[in-house]
Simulated scan of single mutants.
Amino acid sequence: MAELILYTNPMSRGRIARWMLEEVGQPYAVQYLGYGPEFPMSMKSPDYLAINPMGKVPALTHGDAVVTEGAAICAYLADAFPDAGLKPAPGTVAAAAYYRWLFYAAGPIEAAITDRSLGVTVTPEKARMVGYGSYDAVIDAIEAAVTGRPFIAGDGFTAADVYFGSQIGFGLQFGSMPERPGLRRYWEGLSQRPAYKRAAELDDAAIPKRD
């Protein structure tokens, strides 16, 4: 079996890929990369740039295959290891929701949160020029999607919950999303999963200690 290697930093979006790997349940290795000198290998080192020319994490190698971008890694692993049951059956209502919200999280949610964090203001006149429309519209949409539902796609947990849910978890943790009951209940349910807890413990233990 081809080896899975995750290139990540314990204080990055790579935590999402680690969670997904724990859900898959296959053996994998981890190469931690530093923003600076905190780890032996830097994200800007030639060896890593040969894997991801963007010089960012996460990246996943699976034999000769290279996958970057958190949502793509989640989708790839769900496809590569179908026995884990992390993807709905093709052509179903659940599959439609799976793709819809996985890509929505990687596109409009990510862009809306980033713009807001950077102080970028989109005026109502310009809202149709950006994929997310407005920050408030994004928050309303995801709250409506998860209210009264434990999972985002059908009746079972999927890779879409890993990525979509992580965006909500980070948003609540760092204050980039408002505290709304629907968001909080959805995230609290996901964060009780054993695979999430294992991944978080492993990454927390790898964070360099400061003197």
Results as ranks from 00 to 15, higher is better:
Ala145Gly: 03
Tyr186Gly: 06
Phe151Gln: 10
Ser117Arg: 09
His62Gly: 11
Gln31Ser: 07
Cys74Leu: 05
Ile152Ser: 09
Tyr186Glu: 08
Leu86Arg: 01
Met20Ala: 11
Val93Ser: 11
Ala89Asn: 02
Asp83Gln: 14
Thr114Pro: 00
Met11Lys: 15
Ala105Gly: 03
Glu179Arg: 15
Val162Tyr: 01
Met177Val: 08
Arg198Tyr: 07
Ser117Ala: 13
Ile5Ala: 00
Pro90Lys: 06
Met20Asp: 04
Val66Gly: 01
Pro88Arg: 06
Asp204Phe: 00
Glu3Pro: 09
Met43Lys: 07
Asp64Trp: 05
Ala144His: 11
Val24Leu: 13
Arg210Glu: 14
Val93Asp: 12
Gly171Trp: 09
Ala17Thr: 13
Ser176Ala: 07
Val67Met: 05
Gly165Cys: 06
Asp161His: 10
Tyr99Ile: 01
Met41Ile: 13
Leu4Ala: 10
Pro208His: 04
Ser42Cys: 13
Phe103Ile: 09
Leu190Ser: 11
Tyr186Thr: 04
Ala105Lys: 01
Asn9His: 13
Tyr76Lys: 00
Gln173Ala: 13
Phe174Ile: 12
Ala206Ile: 06
Asp155Gly: 10
Glu3Val: 11
Leu183Arg: 00
Ser166Lys: 03
Phe157Asn: 09
Asp161Gly: 08
Val146Trp: 01
Lys87Phe: 06
Phe151Cys: 05
Leu21Ser: 11
Tyr132Trp: 12
Asp161Ser: 07
Ala195Ile: 12
Asp79Ser: 11
Pro58Val: 13
Met129Ala: 06
Gly70Asp: 00
Pro208Ile: 04
Glu143Cys: 03
Thr121Cys: 04
Gly107Val: 08
Ala106Phe: 05
Tyr76Val: 01
Trp187Asp: 03
Pro46Lys: 10
Asp203Ser: 02
Arg193Gly: 14
Ala50Arg: 05
Pro88Ile: 08
Met11Ile: 15
Ile5Thr: 15
Met129Ile: 04
Ala195Val: 14
Leu49Tyr: 03
Pro108Asp: 09
Pro27Gln: 15
Met54Tyr: 13
Phe151Gly: 05
Ala29Ile: 12
Glu69Thr: 02
Ala89Phe: 02
Asp115Glu: 03
Met129Asn: 07
Arg15Ile: 05
Ala80Gly: 08
Glu69Pro: 02
Ala195Gln: 14
Leu4Thr: 15
Val24Ala: 10
Ile113Tyr: 01
Met54Gly: 03
Pro178Cys: 10
Pro90Met: 02
Gly36Arg: 15
Ala71Asp: 02
Ala97Leu: 04
Ala205Leu: 01
Val67Leu: 09
Ala145Val: 05
Ala29Gln: 12
Gln192Trp: 14
Val66Ile: 10
Ile152Val: 14
Asp140His: 08
Asp204Ile: 05
Arg15Gly: 08
Gln31His: 05
Tyr135Val: 13
Gly175Ser: 00
Glu69Ser: 02
